[in-house]
Design a binder for these strands. Structure first.
Lengths: 243, 243
DNA sequence: CGACAACTTGACGGGCGTCAACCGGAGTGG
DNA sequence: CCACTCCGGTTGACGCCCGTCAAGTTGTCG
């Protein structure tokens, strides 16, 4: 658990570099943040609803999700995250966490003291801008998820989730539509799409049978991406990936 | 259509003042923004998906919603807005609109040139902070909506939407749980909750019959707020209203 | 008083949840 | 090296919540 691992911040610097133009000085300032890295198992809670974190959690390797629970204990996953994503940037300006953050695979995370992050955003407007832009893209993704769970049928819903995950993996350099690996269980796909794991399984089987996707365990191959986009009602504009 | 209506910016200044501490100078700078006000009918589009607005739209009076359409033309409302809300702040940093913004009642809106807003956030960190905080709260509300449409049954879902609307109206000085008025049709409630207008009607009748709410046209009275919170699975923490 | 939008209610059907059983692979311990 | 456990995945049977369709009512505005 090194106290200051430069490599841990690289994925973040890369991601912010995709969001906005960062000067070499901005990038250097970012990379010199003090961090504590940690390896955690799948299912580990990084933030729990109600807490007021004093450190900010950066995902260096692996996958995580944000989720909320309803009164019956039903879980709704509201987003998935991967290498380079900051998982609780909102606590820079909000007090208590309004949702949980949990790993869905073994992961490496880096903790950055909130005070240092605050200072960095104060001193470096370009970095504040990149963070704000990241927040706005997050919000856009949430809006698309409201549409996905509210107004699409089960098959389209699952396909859409797969498309978004494929697109984001591709942007993060973790695969391509032609081949990427799902880190999550079918139950987690269900919690993300507002379905049950049984029905997710049925929909995946149908997508496979109809040759929309090609499954081998958790490895997904999508040979006809345009066809998939159509089936999934997926338009990547909401990801705002073009800088 | 006055070119510079000071009163139009008051609701915004009040709202930002609730989000963060603004110095008198910050407030004055905000209030001196050039605006063009306009009165529009219910159903008017203020922003359309795909556009890249050059002005930012502030809701001065009335109500609006953000919505997205799926491939079948189904509409999903992703948020409601009221006096003092900025409707497309995201276009400060994002290019093309990823959703529509539409009034749901006759409304007064104020257009602020994007360039002026950008400059203000550049010169006044406190205002940038307030805007960022507003963005973060928006995102929190979207997350709760994902949970609402994904993991709650129809009755709870409608009740939750009513609770949120009541809470936000109360914060904006537009009513109280004991009495507030819905500006939207039952079809719009349906589009916000991922249901159909027929089923929304059934749920409202049940909530009324069970004395959870008391309806008279679009006027809602909730005498036992704690009971309503329970029925609706509503915890206002996600609104982050305490400064 | 006619037109139209919003609201209301009933009948019926289907998409998805629930329940339950079984399979396969990975990890674990004897 | 095999038995056992456990988690995740798979499949079928059945039922309910909510969508669909359709008709009627109310209220409002011209």
């Amino acid at each position: 658990m090194p106290a200051n691992d430069l490599n841990a911040l690289e994925p973040l610097a890369d991601k912010l570099g995709r969001l906005t133009d960062l000067s070499p000085e901005d990038r250097a300032a970012l990379l010199s943040l003090p961090v504590t890295t940690e390896i955690v198992r799948s299912g580990h809670y990084l933030v729990r609803e109600g807490q007021t974190p004093s450190s900010c959690c950066l995902l260096v390797e692996g996958f995580a999700c944000r989720n909320k629970l309803n009164a019956d204990g039903g879980r709704q996953i509201v987003s998935f995250h991967m290498r380079g994503d900051i998982l609780d940037l909102q606590h820079l300006l909000l007090d208590a966490a309004d949702h949980n953050v949990q790993t869905i695979s073994e992961s490496t995370v880096a903790w950055i003291p909130m005070s240092q992050l605050k200072q960095l955003t104060f001193e470096r407007p370009a970095i504040a801008k990149a963070f704000w832009r990241d927040t706005l893209i997050d919000a856009s993704i949430f809006r698309e998820w409201v549409l996905n769970v509210g107004r699409r049928d089960a098959k389209t819903r699952v396909a859409h989730m797969l498309c978004e995950f494929a697109a984001r993996c591709t942007a993060a350099g973790l695969g391509s539509p032609e081949r990427f690996e799902l880190p999550m269980t079918q139950e987690e796909i269900a919690d993300a799409t507002g379905l049950t794991s049984v029905h997710v399984n049925r929909m995946l089987r149908i997508l496979d049978e109809e040759k929309v996707i090609d499954r081998a365990g958790r490895v997904i191959r999508i040979s006809d991406w345009n066809h998939m986009l159509h089936i999934a009602d997926f338009d990547p504009a909401y990801l705002h990936e073009a800088a």
